[in-house]
């Protein structure tokens, strides 16, 4: 069973996406902000991270960079979740080392496709 870390500050969004992912057969752990996301990534070493970009003080880009710079977590694929489908966001996600990029609100089949592709590549 693959383990996914979801870093998302909105409690309801976190709960909904967790339950929908669990239903798809993933083990899901959650972090409500950037620092705890970075910590949990090192602690749990998930197979994949879903990173909301708009997080309080430390944003998702920064958290991603921290995760990517730590040897223990550098190899974990990260999918960035943004509110806007801007190509500047897309460029930023490539720059900080994200494996992929998706927009909110979540379209579950689309996101599952991206998760599947990332896990396959990592394996």
């Amino acid at each position: 069973m693959h383990k996914i870390l979801l870093v998302e500050d909105n409690e309801m969004n976190r709960d909904m996406l967790t339950r929908r992912l669990q239903r798809q057969g993933f083990a899901v752990c959650c972090a409500p902000d950037g620092p705890s996301g970075v910590a949990m990534a090192a602690q749990e070493t998930p197979d994949l991270i879903l990173m909301d970009v708009a997080l309080g003080e430390m944003d998702g880009w920064e958290a991603t960079q921290l995760i990517k710079s730590a040897p223990r977590t550098a190899a974990i694929p990260i999918i960035a979740l943004t509110a806007h489908a801007l190509s500047s966001d897309r460029a930023k996600s490539v720059e900080v080392g994200c494996a992929d990029f998706d927009t909110k609100p979540i379209d579950l089949p689309r996101l599952l496709g991206k998760i599947g592709a990332c896990l396959q590549k990592a394996a």
């Binding site: 909105n10 309801m12 969004n13 909904m16 339950r19 929908r20 239903r23 609100p105």
Partner: peptide, 16 residues
């Protein structure tokens, strides 16, 4: 948008 997202999201989960 926040409560609406809840209505939509949870009805989706219940629907599933």
């Amino acid at each position: 948008r926040t409560p609406l997202n809840a209505v939509i999201g949870y009805s989706q989960i219940l629907l599933e």
